[in-house]
Every structure is written in C-alpha cells, then in structure tokens.
Design a protein around this nucleic acid. Sequence first.
DNA 1: CATGAATGAGACTTCATTCAT
DNA 2: TATGAATGAAGTCTCATTCAT
Lengths: 196, 196, 196, 196
Amino acid sequence: MDLKNKISEAAEQVLLTNGLAKTTTKEIARAAGCSEGSLYNHFRNKEDIFLHVLRGQLKHLMGTLSSLPNLVGKEPVLKNLEQVSLAALGDFSNSMSLICSIFSEPDILLRHREGFTTRNEGPHRANEAVEAYLLKEKQYGRIPEEMDPRAAADLLLGSCFQHAFQLNFLGKVETKEEQTDFVSRVLKTLFPVEST
Amino acid sequence: MDLKNKISEAAEQVLLTNGLAKTTTKEIARAAGCSEGSLYNHFRNKEDIFLHVLRGQLKHLMGTLSSLPNLVGKEPVLKNLEQVSLAALGDFSNSMSLICSIFSEPDILLRHREGFTTRNEGPHRANEAVEAYLLKEKQYGRIPEEMDPRAAADLLLGSCFQHAFQLNFLGKVETKEEQTDFVSRVLKTLFPVEST
Amino acid sequence: MDLKNKISEAAEQVLLTNGLAKTTTKEIARAAGCSEGSLYNHFRNKEDIFLHVLRGQLKHLMGTLSSLPNLVGKEPVLKNLEQVSLAALGDFSNSMSLICSIFSEPDILLRHREGFTTRNEGPHRANEAVEAYLLKEKQYGRIPEEMDPRAAADLLLGSCFQHAFQLNFLGKVETKEEQTDFVSRVLKTLFPVEST
Amino acid sequence: MDLKNKISEAAEQVLLTNGLAKTTTKEIARAAGCSEGSLYNHFRNKEDIFLHVLRGQLKHLMGTLSSLPNLVGKEPVLKNLEQVSLAALGDFSNSMSLICSIFSEPDILLRHREGFTTRNEGPHRANEAVEAYLLKEKQYGRIPEEMDPRAAADLLLGSCFQHAFQLNFLGKVETKEEQTDFVSRVLKTLFPVEST
DNA sequence: CATGAATGAGACTTCATTCAT
DNA sequence: TATGAATGAAGTCTCATTCAT
C-alpha cells in the first residue's frame, strides 16, 4: 500500500479514536509510521486529509444502493429493503462520529459541500436512491399504489440514521441480532403485512 | 439578565455561527460584552460553557413532549403527532450543528453522557415519549392494534431527525410550509388514511 | 483575634502547605474565612502579607538568643549551647521552606533585606549572638582561650541550618530524640570533652 | 552547541537573574535566541527545563568530592578539607538561590526528590562523602581517634552552606580571600592545631 | 470595614505548516 | 520524496487588584 493510503487509513483511525478536535498531524504521522513533513507530500493540508477520509465513508451503503436498481422486481421488496437498511444502519453507525464532526468546522463543511455538489454526491443521495427503487417497484405493482416513495424512503433511512446516531451518542454498540431486530420492526411497521 | 445568562447566550450564538472548533473564549467574551476572565467567574472552563449551552437545546421539543400525555384521547392523533413532529423538526434543525459538534470531542461527549444519564435525560427520551403516547392511544383504540409503538416513534422522529440533519448538512433552510409539507407526507405514509 | 492576625496565620498555613508559588489571595482569603477584598483592608498587597509572615519566623530562636546573655557564666556552657542549638534546629526546620521561598522572588528579597537592615535584624544576627556569648564565656574562662568564637558559632549554627535544610529537602521529619542526638554529636565534636 | 544546551544555559541565566517566579518561557526563549515553541521540542514543559538546570548545579563540588577518596593518606588532611570546603562554599554560593527556589513549588520539589532518589544522588551525599573521607583518614591515624566523622562533616559543610546562604540572603559577594579566610578559620576551629 | 464580581495582563502550551538537509 | 526541528500565532486559563455596593 502506498503512503498516501497509509496516511489516510491512519487518519481515519485516529479520527475515530480521538475525535476531530484532538486529531493532530503529529498523531496521524505517528499512526502512519511516517514523519509529519511527509503528510504534506501527499496532502495539501490537514483539512485535505480529513476530507479525503470523509469521502471514503458510507462506502458499503453506497455500494448496496447502486446495486438496488438491478433488484427491482426480483427479490422480495422487504428483503431488498432489509439489505439496504442493514447497510445503512451499519455504515451510519461506523461513520456517524466522523460525519457529525464536520459540524464543528463550518468552513470545512462548506468546502465539503462544494466538493460533493460538484461530484453530484452527498448523503441525501441515499434517500433518493431508495425513493427511486420504491417508485419502480410501484410500477411493478409490488408496493401499494397510494404509497409515497419519498416519504417512505425518508422514514426508513431516517429511522436508521437516528438510531445509529443515538447508539453513538449513548456509547452503545449493537449486536448483529439487535440490528436485524430493529430493522425488521421498523420495516414491519412501515409496510404492514397485508400491504405488500 | 445576569452575566451568566448573557455569557451562555453569547456562547450559543458564537457556537452556531463559528462552530465549536472556531469558538474561542475571546470571541465568547466579546459577544457577551465582558472580559475573558469574567467567563471563569461563572463557568469552570470552556467545556463547562459548552455543556451548559448544550443542555439548553431541544427545549421546545421537550416542552411539547411533556404536554403530550395530556392530549391522549383528545385532539386527533394525527394532529398531535403533527405538533410533535413540527417541534422535533424545528428543534433538531436549530440544534443539529451544536449537538453533532460534540462528536468532535469524545471526552466532552463522555462527560455530557454522564451528565444526562445522572439526570435521566438524553435525546432518546423523545422517542420514548412518543412511544408512550402511541401506546396509550392504542389503548384508546385510536390507532390500529397491530401497530408497533416504538417502531412508529423511531420512524417518525428518525425521519425528522435525518431531515434536519440533511438540511444543515446541505446548508438549506426550509420555510414553514416546506416543513409542514414534509411532516404531513411522512405522517400520511406512516398512518395511511384508512388506518386511523 | 483580629482579622489581620487571622489573615496572617491563614497565609502562613497556606504558604507552608502550598508553597509560595501556589499561594493565591483567593486561597488565603478562604483559609482566613474572609473575602479576597478584605485582605486589602489590612495589607497593601500580597507581598505585604508574605513579608509579614516572613518577619514572624524564627521567633523561638530569637527569643532563646536574647536570653543568652543572662546565662553567661551560669549554666554549663554546653547546656546553654544545646538549648540554642535545639531552638535553632527547630525553628530552622519549621521556617526553612518559607525563608528559602524568597529566593524565587529577588524583588521581594530586596525589599525584605531593606526591611531588616533598617530594623537591624536578619538571620546573621543569630550567629553574632552566639559569637558574643562565646566571647563572654571565654572571658569567664569557661571555653579555651584559643577558640575562635565566630568560627565556632558559624560551625554550630551552620550545621543546624544545613541539617534543617536537608530534612526539608528530603521530606523527612525528625523526632525530638533524633534532634537531640544530632545536636549532642555536633557539640561533642566541636567541644571535645577535655576542652571545656 | 545544540539548541537544547543553549536553552538550558539561557534558562539558568534567567533563573539566576530573575528568580524562579519571574522566569517566563518567553524570557528563556528570548535569552536562548529561539521561539517559545522551540522550548517544547526539547523539554516537556517549563518544570522540565527547571529540573534540568537544577540537576546541573553543584557540579564543581561533586567533582571535588569524587576525587577525595584518591587523596586519602596523601596530601595533608587540612589541605584536602580546604579544597573541599572552598568548592562547597563556591558552589553553594552560586547555586543557593536556584536550589532554594524549589521550596516555593512543593510539587516540583517532590518530583525532584523522586528523581535524585532514583539516581541515588542528592545534596546529603556531599556530607556522606566527607564523612567517608574522614573515616578513612582516621584509619590512617591522620585524625584523632575520638573524632566523630559524620558530625565533623556536618559541621564543616554546614557552616559553608549557611555562610553561602547568608551571603546570598544579604546580597553580598565575597572575594577569593574572604572565602579562604572563612574556610581557614572554620577549619582551624574544627581541627585545633595540636589535634592533627 | 466587608464584599466578591469584574478585570486585563500575561503565563504556559499546542499545533499546523515550512524548509533546509 | 522523506525528514523533523523550528516556528509563531493563537488558545485557555490564572490571579492580584479594584471598586461599587
């Protein structure tokens, strides 16, 4: 692995351990096994490292979402949504503290925003992807005609998002079973049995 | 107003404007119209000021939630939930950047956690309050027997929470109408007409 | 007891406990049971308090020394010198950290010096007093003709002084017996039996 | 000379000039010709600098003492003791204010104590060294059988110590002749001519 | 004479970034 | 490209002293 990636991974680990405020270039260099000066041979500055790490978050979820269009009309809707929800819950849980940290630095948030706007990315894409999926399933008649796809997507991902937030906030970690249980209860409530 | 409150309000304003990372004691003092030294006559340190401001967040939502038990069986369920949702959306929007900032300082988060654990508070209380409300309404027969109160609460508040998060993240501000529209779509999806 | 004395005693206690560097007006006021402002109704400033406390040191030794002239030719010389030595050892031990602290503030030392020069006092007076005593005893023929009174005084008090210093430095406290033993060995060496 | 030594020497000079209480990092940096930040590339903190300087004190005396065992039985006892006494007087005079300053910061004294305890050093070692020397000379029959080596060492070094203390306290500086005179009188009194 | 909040100067320390090697 | 000592700006916090009550 090249040094740039090593730095990036080291930074991610330090950020998750110490928090953005207590993440110093000295610590990143130590974790990456290189000198502080080396950081600047691969990144413009500390913010650049942070943004690089930030852009690498939610990878699992994004992958799942991009494979969603191929599942339309195939696997059971609820099964597909469960996959998405679990991916969301997992990725949100892992990335929450990193993503939230950006609110402590509005300047960086601004630049980050410009970045993902340019690349047509952003956290709201997830909701749009689920909405698009539901819309297509409706055309297939696999979900009720009267369902509002965007609202359903917001409810589903929103509950996962807040759940992940609260776990992080409370310092709790859930087992696989607890996660599945949460997702299943939420899905059952959003899509009562007779409806699909 | 005494200086302690003036400092607290000044700090809140500076925190919202500059973000936690760029909020300095010098700036807080300037905004409060006092000397830096004076901050320390009323707060132990900078963290103490931050936690004080933090504890003052979500006041509107908490007020709405505490009046919820009195509404059981009276106003239409959907109207009650709309009130709660709007309060949540508003308070989440206003407090999001402050609350999220704490993830950049795990040490502070830890202390904050201890604080609200002791006082039996915390952000998850909101979901519990809505859950309790729904449970009682179920006993009144005003919502379907098969509904899972906790899951419904998580879906509802979760969608508001994530929506507020994304607005802050994207730097957008919603009008009253947009907020009402969001809440109404979400509620309609969670409680399809025939169900209540 | 009036407040001025209460403050003075409180300051002495705080100085001995915390050291000069960590002795704050707030702490003195707390120990004296009054407000910080009150300190300034009785002393010009913090230095004034310190000098006041400093001047109160070595009281026991000074008392013993001033009674020394009356003992010339009466009690055995060694017994008189033992009294003086024990008083010196005791007072030096108790006052050492306070007196030494002044070296950390040359400005204060300067003012202190002016003070005791004016009042014709100072730590070197002790040696002079013992010297004067020995001189008189020599005239009485109670100590050898060839003895140098000043040198003898310097040896005796010097050893007590350094001993007290080292105890403080090493954080040790001696029992009455250990003190008496030290003094007796030193006196025996300085005044071998056949000499007196 | 590397920067660490430059800082150390600068600090010693500032400490001797301004006293511990008025020795600031800014002043040390100025005297060392570097930035304040640089201090922290070579020392953990200000206390670390102080302790480093402190440990460098009494070097001359310690050197003289370590060469003492080689002189047993060779040079005249009084000449050897004069060397030691002069070294002690000189080093004590130069280091007194620095060494005494530590009493103003009990916390630092504590740490310093731990340090030299670990390294089996400390100011009391000087007295032990002289005691050991005298003991050996006694075996050579060069000092009276009835002499108490420890007491003699304490008297000799104690008088030098207190003399140096008082000179510093009174703000006086002695010439070489005055020092030699003091030492010679003290030695003559402690070792009357016929005794050696 | 007593109070204690307010002050403001200044101390120590951290840290991202640079640059000569 | 890699290094790491040097930097200097900036931040948090302390504390003796004042003054209005």
